[in-house]
Design a protein around this nucleic acid. Structure first.
Lengths: 260, 260
DNA sequence: CGATTGGTTGAGCCCATTCAACGAATGTGG
DNA sequence: CCACATTCGTTGAATGGGCTCAACCAATCG
């Protein structure tokens, strides 16, 4: 595993993992790039056999790097590919006619983007990089071709789509019936859990998005987000310094959220 | 077409259409039940050829009737079938540990229930009938079998799943950044549009759900819903009498909703 | 270096909630 | 058939949480 440093903000240095092809013993069969990726359990190949991954792998455009604020696809763009994040973070936003924007999601390594564009053949939202990183791309036509060869891929894909729908109720509860503190606590604990799944620290995290982004996503104004963070800091639940957050009392944060 | 009357509340009688097999001329090939259903354009067979529908049709358990307040599937139930509403209306609710419930959706004829249960193999929500009606059922194992025979069905199914995900942003905007009046106007116009698609009147409609159900779905308290309805009534936008609603000024309602 | 973007904090206001009372409708059992 | 309990809906008054408006500071960038 290789670690590199890159610069975010003025003082925070973050280590990210380059998902590199592992060195192979001479007796081993050469592995595909996807097959050796450290986040393949979270990515599109979830639940596939090594053989199936190898077939999928051949159609994937691997590790295209992107910079902060780069637009991966704009809103309304014709749909042609699914995107899988390798490293870094993205946000998706829906643009209103009047110019206002609503953040609809934050995406980490292994997350798949573009699933909402299949039916209309156009991306309803735009995807923007929150920091530098890299992503993989698979043309949907190629994916369809592969899925005809291996029905299992299609079943797994349907399961993944179903899993996206399942989060709907969570969002509705969050936005429909939670206070600002409850929303923020839910958001931070969820982010922490997702980072942990990706082998990052669950307690020390960098919020690559702005307060405004968080507020838009959580249905709050940026001032409210800022105030809630300060409150958590004063209460000893968090250590907050700009975008660098340390979760000091996860249990305390959890106890803020009703009925779970 | 046959019309029957059934009783909802004390004074409102509603005509519903029984989707009956149309009479066939002697020269015609016998049609499947799905193939002759008036709402097949909205239901699972969307985008399939007559031949494909016939294959699907053979695995469908047709038109099981249900009564008001009947639970179609409880929360946590193992997933085995998809359900398609033939006539009537349902709601889905997610139950919290503390006993509170959140309404996550209202479903009309042609809508498919159970899509969110595929990945976990358990229904995350419970489905309850808001009035009497009938639904069709297809075991998912049978559906998978059929989809291996006809890949087109699977593509259509993936497209349908994608279409469910696309509504996420709409819900987020609704719950995240709209006032009570805006939410209610959006809800009523959306319901009106969906009813129109199903050959019902878009202006005269019956709200089979309670004010509490609407409030839960819209992230409002039932009193707020009631007040907003009364306000719309006083402003001449609606005629409200209990659960019977008449939309008097759709354009006025529309103008309440920001930026669209 | 000034300009711009992002973040914090304060004061006052407003909309939705809470608490409460009451009326209407429905269903049940005597 | 009526008395009663229950559910559902409406309306009023008071409260409060998040928003608006605003000032200020820090960091970044050209």
């Amino acid at each position: 595993m290789v670690h590199i440093y890159f610069r975010i903000g003025v003082e925070y240095k973050e280590t990210i993992q380059i998902h590199q092809i592992t060195m192979l013993a001479p007796t081993q069969i050469p592995q595909s790039i996807c097959g050796s990726c450290t986040i393949r359990q979270l990515c599109l190949p979830t639940g596939l056999t090594d053989e199936e991954i190898n077939i999928l792998d051949q159609h994937v455009i691997h590790r295209k790097s992107f910079k902060k604020n780069e637009v991966i696809f704009p809103s309304g763009e014709p749909f042609h590919s699914l995107y899988m994040i390798s490293t870094g973070q993205l946000k998706t936003t829906v643009l209103h006619n009047d110019g206002r924007a609503q953040v609809t999601g934050f995406y980490l390594g292994g997350d798949v983007l573009g699933l909402d564009a299949i039916s209309t053949q156009h991306h309803p939202s735009e995807a923007v990089a929150l920091c530098s990183g890299a992503l993989c791309q698979i043309p949907f036509a190629a994916f369809k071709l592969v899925s005809h060869q291996i029905p299992n891929i299609q079943q797994q894909f349907i399961s993944r789509l179903s899993n996206e729908i399942i989060h709907d109720p969570d969002v509705m509860i969050l936005l429909g019936s939670m206070t600002a503190d409850e929303r923020l606590a839910t958001f931070l604990l969820n982010l922490s859990k997702r980072l942990e799944l990706r082998q990052h620290s669950p307690t020390e995290l960098t919020l690559y998005m702005t307060r405004d982004d968080m507020g838009s996503y959580l249905g709050l104004k940026l001032e409210t987000v800022s105030r809630a963070l300060s409150r958590f800091h004063d209460q000893g639940l968090l250590f907050v310094k700009g975008r660098h957050i340390q979760i000091l009392d996860a249990i305390g944060l959890h106890s803020l959220i009703p009925h779970r």
